[in-house]
Design a protein around this nucleic acid. Structure first.
Length: 899
RNA sequence: GGACGAUUAGCUCAGUUGGCUAGAGCGCUUCUCUUACAAAGAAGAAGUCACUGGUUCGAGUCCAGUAUCGUCCACCA
């Protein structure tokens, strides 16, 4: 036994060392792989983690899946590239730093000013970014660090500006006024996904605008009614039909309003009075009605959350104050008919929880519907839908295609400007506007605009103060990391872009399918007129043991670094890879990781045994002559050959779990529990030596993508000079060559022997043979006599507990012995048995078999079955019946013997 | 409100075009320190496949509906 191999495997000691060796080798970079010129490429871009968070288990799961794909393809001779990077996550990061500043220094970003504040962000960012990158390495991810990128580094800044400029000139980036979700506290617009909804108790007021208005309306927000320009009713509503199209001039709470009665199908006749006041400036739904009906837009609430100028004594009041004033006014005039309690959803800012105010505002948009020349007179939306329909992009699992298409088909223009400081500055300049305000009276369209990377040389040009939506820069991730736009001149790709784009797989969580994946498709189609990736693999969320999301507040999270330290990265990787299916959530907990740690130890010990007992130099499969192979050898070699086929099959279908389970079953049950045991006593030592070594080596290769550290570690212990990570993936052909033409007769016997061993084990257990007591066996082999004689020792030693084995040419009746018969071979186990217990057991079993046989008989008598079921199935059932009947006879015979 | 997913052993999950006396791991029970491994080995108990119908010779698998849980989307005066 080699002295330096401890009984238990300690991953902690070696993992970092091994990662350094890999990095030093340079093979993470495909340029350093020794491959033929025409080798196919395989590229994956790492979904960049937000620099606000440290790594969580979801990241580890993602890294494990991608690293598996990468290592598998690298070993299969692909020019394999996996690019690492991080995401600046504009809003989230700014928010974290703002909170930190408030807590530590009690200051806001406005106290610091834009430049100073950004310095704070950058110093925060550098710290967390380096932590994340270090953590990624702990998982064993074989990323090409020489190509590392950041969504807000210089190269990406250049790419983002260029993209904006190109899209602007192509006419699909435009500036327009839209109603947006505005957070009065954060002073920023919120994307749809940044708004949270919370159900709340609310007051629902029913009132008439004025005495001379014919009917009442209902609302939860009376203060916004100052901005009403219409009343909407359902076109089918008999109560209001006659008013549709009429105009009213009225006085509402001391304020003049012009109202038009419009019809809209979406109005619920049974809700409130069935009539609703339309406030285009302060409601998403109303804005759309206003667009359809060409209504005037009256802004009531300002960016500060207060009533704007021009509303008499309401001006300057907060929303809540104004509401009370109006209610009082309505009460005084006896216009208020009802106040009810209702539950409705309140929109809240996801960061600070402040109620969101929908406001009209000037923003930059990407048009998804405008048809442009560059896209063959199609729109971004049309092209993005087309590539999914044509299966140019495939989704795994398939059901997500529908989700993608649903989202795409309902997509509206994408608002890309954000009123925050941290992020990609919009490359737009305005002339003669010393103080450009987003909601200023002067519209941007009336200003002189320059769109370009650099500020115009004349004076008085001021840059747009807004930044771009994070998804705009991460949407360019597949090509901004590969040197776009430098590598794309005159519509021709060069360099990395030419070699590696489109990428082969995008692997990410299904929760950002719409947010991210859809945008990557559109931006890539615009920039390069090609898809960003060929396949989208979507993984589920990582949940705790009880199916809950892991979160800090719940305290149910597992820190991946903790469990990596405790069990090793390989075990954690296995726990995320095995036992779940694509697109489904996965539950991870310590016991699960622990069980995989036990498995890594098993493999370690298999290796320990082989390294300790075999001559490592003797591993040339050509030296094995098939006529010296025993049945056990042939069996394991066949199993291995099948395993390779199955693993390849599963991995190419993204069934990682299935591949892992097959590997585990082979390693543990076939290889360790059977073959290694057999190898201890079968006499063809030379052949055994070679077979054990080539099996172990190939097993390490097959396992490498799943658990790179342990396999590389053992590989090194086997005195291999090259790194396992660039070894060639095993092929089935080698095994076919060793096996020669399989001998079917031998095969038959071997399968019989296996079933005998199992039968012996069962008999032993079922008969309550005294613990520790050895038993003798007598075998009558009949026609298989010689084969059994050769393999008999195999039966004896495979932990059957049989101590003495005799093989007879003619069967002998042995009173009181346990009798088993399989395939013409009879075994008598000679031992003391408890007859009564034995009888009970077998009677129960007999009963079972009889029921089953009866079922089969009934089935076979059914004419419909015979006529309609395929011949194969009918035959199968007939055989089953035969076998079962034979078993019944055997048991009956045995029961008789017992008496 | 709309869409999608889940529901199989005490727990976590497989079960690929319907052919199944429904499998695995963990846990549990019994036995074994057997010279690679007790983080092991040998064996065992345990399930009306959520419910109700339908299609079919045959349904865990297909269809319809119901219930519970989860996720996403939309947001309603």
């Amino acid at each position: 036994m080699p002295k330096d191999l401890p009984k238990t495997y300690h991953p902690q000691k070696t993992e970092d060392e091994i990662y350094q060796k890999w990095e030093k080798s340079g093979y993470f970079n495909p340029d350093n792989l020794k491959l033929p010129e025409d080798a196919k490429t395989y590229s994956v871009i790492l979904p960049p983690p937000n620099i606000t968070d440290k790594l969580h288990l979801g990241h580890v799961s993602m890294l494990a899946i991608e690293d598996l794909l990468i290592r598998y393809h690298r070993m299969n001779g692909f020019k394999t590239l996996w690019i690492p990077g991080t995401d600046h996550a504009a809003i989230a990061t700014q928010n974290v730093v703002e909170k930190k500043l408030l807590k530590e220094k009690k200051i806001t970003r406005h106290d610091l000013g834009r430049d100073k504040f950004l310095e704070e962000v950058w110093s925060f960012l550098q710290e967390t970014q380096s932590i994340i990158l270090r953590q990624i390495k702990k998982t064993g991810a074989s990323l090409d660090w020489s190509r590392e990128a950041f969504t807000l580094d210089e190269k990406r800044k250049q790419a983002v500006s260029q993209m904006f400029i190109d899209m602007y000139h192509a006419g699909i980036i435009y500036r327009g006024e839209r109603i947006v979700n505005w957070c009065p506290r954060c002073h920023s617009t919120l994307a749809d996904d940044e708004v949270e909804y919370k159900e709340q108790e609310n007051k629902f007021y029913t009132f008439k605008y004025s005495k001379d208005f014919p009917f009442a309306i209902s609302t939860t927000r009376p203060e916004t009614k100052l901005g009403d320009t219409a009343i909407a009713v359902n076109p089918k509503d008999e109560r209001y039909k006659k008013y549709i199209g009429r105009n009213f001039k009225i006085n509402f709470a001391g304020f003049p309003l012009k109202l038009k009665i419009i019809a809209d199908r979406n109005v619920d006749m049974n809700f409130g009075t069935g009539a609703l006041g339309v406030t285009p400036a302060h409601s998403m739904a109303d804005w759309q009605m206003a667009e359809k009906n060409n209504l005037a837009i009256v802004k009531v609430i300002g960016e500060d959350g207060k009533i704007r100028e021009g509303f008499k004594n309401y001006s300057g009041k907060t929303v809540a104050e104004a509401r009370q004033m109006i209610i009082r006014e309505l009460k005084n005039k006896k216009l208020l008919e009802k106040v009810e309690d209702i539950k409705n959803n309140l929109s809240l800012c996801y960061r600070c929880g402040t109620p969101v105010e929908p406001l009209p505002s000037e923003q930059w948009f990407v048009s998804v519907d405008k048809k442009i020349k560059k896209l063959g007179n199609k729109s971004l939306k049309e092209r993005a839908i087309e590539v999914a329909h044509q299966e140019k992009i495939k989704f795994i699992p398939e059901r997500f295609k529908k989700r993608y298409l649903d989202w795409m088909e309902n997509l509206h223009d994408w608002c890309i400007s954000r009123q925050i400081w941290f992020g990609h500055r919009i490359p737009v300049w305005y002339k003669n506007s010393s103080q450009f305000t987003v909601h200023g009276s002067q519209s941007a369209n009336e200003k002189e605009i320059y769109v370009g990377v650099k500020k115009p040389e004349e004076k008085n040009w001021i840059q747009d103060s807004d930044t771009l939506d994070t998804w705009f820069s991460s949407g360019m991730w597949t090509f901004s990391t590969l040197g776009w736009p430098d590598n794309f001149k005159d519509n021709k790709k060069s360099g990395d872009l030419k070699k590696f784009h489109p990428t082969q797989v995008l692997e990410t969580g299904y929760e950002i399918l719409t947010l991210w994946v859809s945008r990557m498709v559109m931006l890539s189609l615009f920039a390069l007129n090609e898809i960003p990736f060929e396949n989208v693999y979507l993984h589920g969320m990582v949940l705790d043991k009880h199916g809950k999301k892991m979160s800090k507040s719940r305290g149910n999270g597992i820190d991946p670094l903790d469990v990596i330290k405790k069990f090793g990265a390989d075990s954690v990787r296995l726990a995320t890879l095995i036992g779940n299916t694509p697109g489904n959530d996965v539950k991870i907990y310590e016991e699960k990781i622990k069980s995989f740690r036990n498995f890594t130890n098993k493999l370690w010990n298999i290796a320990r045994f082989i390294i300790g007992n075999c001559k490592l130099q003797n591993s040339n499969s050509n030296q094995v002559s098939s006529n010296k192979l025993t049945l056990a050898d042939k069996w394991i070699l066949t199993e291995m050959k099948n395993l390779i086929t199955e693993v390849n099959d599963s991995l190419t279908k993204y069934n990682f779990s299935q591949a892992g389970e097959k590997l585990k079953e082979f390693t543990w049950n076939s290889f360790a529990d059977w073959y290694v045991e057999v190898s201890k006593f079968e006499k063809n030592k030379e052949e055994k030596n070679i077979i054990l070594i080539i099996l172990l080596k190939d097993l390490l290769k097959l396992w490498h993508p799943f658990m790179p550290f342990l396999t590389e570690n053992i590989w090194e212990k086997m005195e291999n000079k090259n790194l396992l990570m660039i070894e060639k993936w095993p092929s089935e052909k080698k095994y076919l060559a060793i096996l020669g033409t399989p001998n079917e007769t031998e095969w038959y016997i071997f399968s019989k022997i296996q079933s005998i061993i199992i039968a012996v084990r069962n008999a032993r257990a079922k008969n309550n043979i005294e613990p520790g007591k050895k038993i003798e066996a007598l075998i009558y082999a009949g026609e298989h006599y010689s084969a059994i004689k050769n393999e008999g020792i195999l039966i004896k030693s495979l932990r059957t507990g049989i101590d003495k084995l005799e093989i007879k040419e003619k069967g002998e009746k042995i009173p009181g012995a346990i009798y088993i018969s399989e395939g013409g071979i009879e075994i008598y186990l000679i031992s003391a048995i408890d007859k009564n217990k034995e009888k009970l057991r077998f009677e129960k079993e007999l009963d079972n078999f009889k029921k089953y046989a009866a079922g089969l008989e009934k089935k076979l008598k059914n004419k419909n079955f015979i006529e309609k079921a395929p011949e194969k199935i009918v035959q199968q059932n007939k055989e089953n019946l035969k076998k079962t009947e034979a078993k019944i006879q055997k048991i009956e015979k045995y029961l008789k013997n017992l008496d």
